[in-house]
Design a protein around this nucleic acid. Structure first.
Length: 554
RNA sequence: GCGCCAGUAGCUCAGCUGGAUAGAGCAUGUGACUUCUAAUCACAGGGUCGAGGGUUCGAGUCCUUCCUGGCGCGCCA
């Protein structure tokens, strides 16, 4: 709809230039928006004002010329008005709007897909929690956000891959192994002094017990390094599997699990460092190798190789991101906890060092989650091992509520997650509100079928039967859905889908309460059924993007 | 000290990349179930958009200086 209008305006502008009505000859970008107030029409453009400077002419004069050139639009609009300082407002015909319902019907589950991404390859890397413990609630928000961003971008026509980066190299795996080994010995009755820098959580003890049951006491007499290797690998693998299970329970599935260790095994880390060295972006100081990230806006240079010869986490990140682009992605998106925001400048510097546009890497920072129960904060501390796991929250409040809550706010604002509220089956809970709208349509469908009616298809209804203001409003809202998807994709903001859903559900509930869909007049009933099933389609499609189910009854 | 993010109704938050009279949910108050699901709806009150200055036809949105809160500033991962 919007696109068609933009084309008309473009044509009119060209006409004005050709006929010397306007002189600057510069085709401006045509901004078309839905005005906040319905009195200002269905669409509004500010181009006359935007052109005022170049044309050296009053905006309203320019608007008049454009409007004159627009003609009648083949019945697309009732009227066009020039308003305020020079807005051009379009009032489209109901017939034109209701035609959009056929689009929704025809495309069905595909309605809302666009070609904006033009098949460009995008990778979304998210969660990427260390395999040293189970996922907690904060990871859940990252998972919901990353998955929804990937879904939204897929809908917008990008080719998207979901990737999980496993930090399975370095000290932490040894620490995990040591933690397990010590707990194992403890279970065998040894007196163990469990260090504070080991992982404190009870899941470590559970894992150690598992090992004991499977392997017996034989590991006790293994040489230390051999035992450590066993426990590291065993623990890392088990915890990784657990993470994968938890994510599956959350409805999140990755296309690829990428091992950090594999970068070392394939000498990618060395290659990455060498590449930066060849380009003269590094130097040696005090026995360490530094990357001059300050050249690209970072506030300090960063170490790649420590004076003891060990590479840093940053070094493998250089290799990892280099390798991502080698795999042919046009855009790479990293979803990080907001506490890592200090790493953004150095990662952007990596892009510059790789001679890529820093814009090709987008970093979504997800703020921390404040877990509440009845308004009281739930204390959490990863260190002490006292934290609420994602699995516990899914089990308690359900996957739908959990996902919806995580996506209700823009990701860079902090989120209060109240367990009691998320569980409540009441009007305080926005998840059910939206799902209920979907279930209601299904319920009406069942009712209609019981009365011997069939749900109408395209061409089987007379739009002239849709005479109510609410019916027109609903239709307009449905027609905006693809733009909402585009906007959410372009800005990496899945919460826009949530807000749209709430608005659509509200409009539908309101419509439902004002009158009945099925009335004595079969033609009107048919038209209304057609409309509300378009609503159902869009509710369903949008919920799917968020990973939330669309139930048929509640 | 430096940097990043935030500050909008009593509370939690939107605000479509600078547009017209700043919105929603919750909470509060009143009303609607012999009617396709009341997990719903209708109506009402509620604002110095943290503060000051600037940019322009026009600022919640951009620049700047303060104030407040969160986070980050390792040859850790």
């Amino acid at each position: 709809m919007k696109q068609r209008l933009v084309q008309y305006i473009g044509k009119a502008l060209q006409g004005c230039f050709d006929q010397q009505q306007l002189h600057s000859g510069v085709m401006p970008e045509i901004g078309l928006e839905v005005p906040a107030h319905t009195e200002h029409g269905d669409f509004s453009t500010n181009i006359a004002m935007a052109m005022a400077r170049a044309e050296k002419k009053a905006p309203r004069k320019i608007a008049e010329a454009i409007v004159a050139a627009l003609g009648d639009g083949d019945g697309m609009w009732d009227r066009i008005e020039i308003a305020g300082p020079g807005f051009i407002n379009f009032y489209l015909t109901p017939r034109c709007w209701f035609g959009m319902l056929d689009e929704v019907y025809r495309q069905g589950e595909l309605y809302g897909r666009t070609h904006t991404g033009a098949g460009r390859k995008v990778q979304v890397e998210f969660v990427s929690a260390n395999p040293t413990g189970p996922l907690h609630i904060g990871h859940g928000r990252g998972a919901a956000t990353g998955d929804a961003v990937a879904a939204v971008m897929t809908a917008a026509g990008y080719e998207v891959q979901r990737e999980y980066y496993i930090n399975d190299a370095g000290n932490q795996m040894l620490t995990l192994g040591r933690s397990l080994l010590l707990r194992y010995r403890e279970l065998l009755g040894e007196a163990v002094d469990f260090p504070t820098d080991c992982y404190q959580g009870v899941y470590i003890i559970d894992l150690a017990r598992e090992v004991l049951e499977q392997e017996g006491e034989r590991l006790r007499n293994l040489p230390e390094d051999e035992a450590l290797r066993f426990f590291s690998e065993y623990g890392g693998g088990k915890i990784r599997d657990g993470i994968e299970d938890d994510l599956a329970a959350f409805g999140v599935h990755f296309d690829n699990w990428y091992s950090e260790q594999s970068l070392y095994d394939r000498q990618e880390v060395e290659r990455g460092i060498a590449l930066l060295q060849e380009r003269g972006l590094t130097y040696e100081k005090e026995g360490a190798i530094w990357f001059r990230t300050t050249d690209y806006g970072d506030d300090k240079d960063r170490v790649l190789v420590r004076s003891n010869g060990a590479t840093t986490y940053f070094a493998s990140d250089v290799a990892y991101h280099k390798e991502k682009f080698d795999r042919g992605f046009d855009t790479v998106i990293d979803v990080w906890g907001a506490d890592h925001h200090g790493y953004v400048p150095r990662m952007k510097a990596v892009l510059a060092g790789l001679e890529r546009n820093p814009q090709d890497l987008q970093i979504i920072l997800v703020q921390l989650v404040n877990l509440l129960r009845d308004g009281q904060q739930v204390a959490m501390s990863t260190r002490s091992g006292e934290f609420v796991t994602l699995r516990e929250v899914i089990d308690e409040v359900g996957r739908d509520a959990c996902r919806f809550f995580f996506l209700m706010r823009r990701s860079d604002s902090q989120l209060d997650f109240d367990l009691e509220l998320a569980k409540k089956q009441s009007n305080e809970n926005p998840v059910f509100y939206v799902q209920y709208a979907h279930a209601r349509v299904c319920s009406i469908n069942r009712n209609a079928e019981e009365q011997g009616m069939t749900i109408p298809g395209q061409g089987q209804v007379d739009f002239d039967c849709l005479t109510l203001e609410d019916e027109l409003m609903l239709t307009k809202l449905l027609s905006r859905y693809p733009e909402v998807v585009d906007g959410a994709a372009a800005n990496f903001e899945p919460h826009r889908i949530v807000f749209y859903l709430q608005e659509l559900a509200a409009r539908f509930h309101s419509y439902y309460n004002k009158g009945r869909v099925i009335i004595d007049d079969p033609e009107v009933s048919q038209a209304r059924l057609y409309l509300i099933n378009c609503v159902r389609t869009v509710l369903h499609n949008a919920l799917v993007l968020l990973g939330v189910s669309a139930p048929d009854r509640m």
